[in-house]
Design a protein around this nucleic acid. Sequence first.
DNA 1: ACCTGAACACCGTTCAAGT
DNA 2: ACCTGAACACCGTTCAAGT
Lengths: 194, 194
Amino acid sequence: MGRQAQIGRAVILDTALKIADDHGLDAVTMHGVARSLEVTPMALYRHVASKAALLDGLVEVLLTEIPLPPRAQPWDEFLMALAAAIRATARRHPAAFPLLLFRPAVTPAATSVRDAVHQALRQAGVPEAQVARTERLLSTAVLGFAVSEATGRFSRHDQAAIDADFAELQRWLRQLLPPGSTNQTAGNTVGETS
Amino acid sequence: MGRQAQIGRAVILDTALKIADDHGLDAVTMHGVARSLEVTPMALYRHVASKAALLDGLVEVLLTEIPLPPRAQPWDEFLMALAAAIRATARRHPAAFPLLLFRPAVTPAATSVRDAVHQALRQAGVPEAQVARTERLLSTAVLGFAVSEATGRFSRHDQAAIDADFAELQRWLRQLLPPGSTNQTAGNTVGETS
DNA sequence: ACCTGAACACCGTTCAAGT
DNA sequence: ACCTGAACACCGTTCAAGT
């Protein structure tokens, strides 16, 4: 028994993301993805359980695509670089990115981003009892901005104005964290929370 | 010519919102709304141009449903009350509310909320050149939180934790605005921007 | 002016069948 | 184990027709 698999979960997700990039999220359909792969719609169901599962997979791909900045730098630079990386990913995949706001971040990819932020916040001197809450508010603000930009909520403003908005957001976020511990490097205690 | 209209735009939008509340946004379909109204799907097209237009109408209804707090109070209380009102609306309509992040706020309803915030920010002493930008970041943060809560992104936390998150968010926002002008009332110059 | 009826291309998913 | 084929209920929307 057995037969060479023609497609796999990874190719399906990549194809779906490409369709979203090129033609919008509404164009991501089981029939459409199958058509792109020159395969029957039903062939997909061997690799993804349902369309909802396919969208969950897209979220995973997006999270994995966010490049974690090097941790050997001051915590504030690390956090600002991460915010910029998240925004850049949103701009690369504006149609698919909003999905990130719609699913609780419980997958390994999501956890790893969150843990990195937790580390940086500890380095920043945020009291342990506040670390998780601060991460939630930080990520909500950055995601909110990235999604707003991606969906065109700011579209009546020019690029320069939106860039300045983001710079101001970054200033806000830095301002909200305890000052003065800027010289410490983030992430040199990786693993202590696992 | 002439015939008693059985349905109208308002009833269509109300019905669509009810369906979203009860069965989720995916259940909002032309066929489904028509079924609820005991009418043919095609009857809707006399009152809304397309499904996209129907969703735009839903955004309008949501914006109109946000009760603007009384303006005769200190600007910071006004802004915090407005944030709370936005969050409350999101909680009443969790399925439909995320639509607000997906359309530029150009309708009259959206403009009126934005103008009220602009007024309050001026009262707060925000320099004129910063008013629009500050409003964008403020509304992005509040919308981001409200949508995250509505979509269940925080669902692995209990209600008390999420309430505390929101309280912390409100503290952040207040902190970011110029201090010291708390005794002025907001909105007593309504109309000066129109 | 407002609604119905029939129709079309498309969608997500089931079930049975092929190799 | 992996894919195909036929099928079903449903969707958004067009077009022509009724009153």
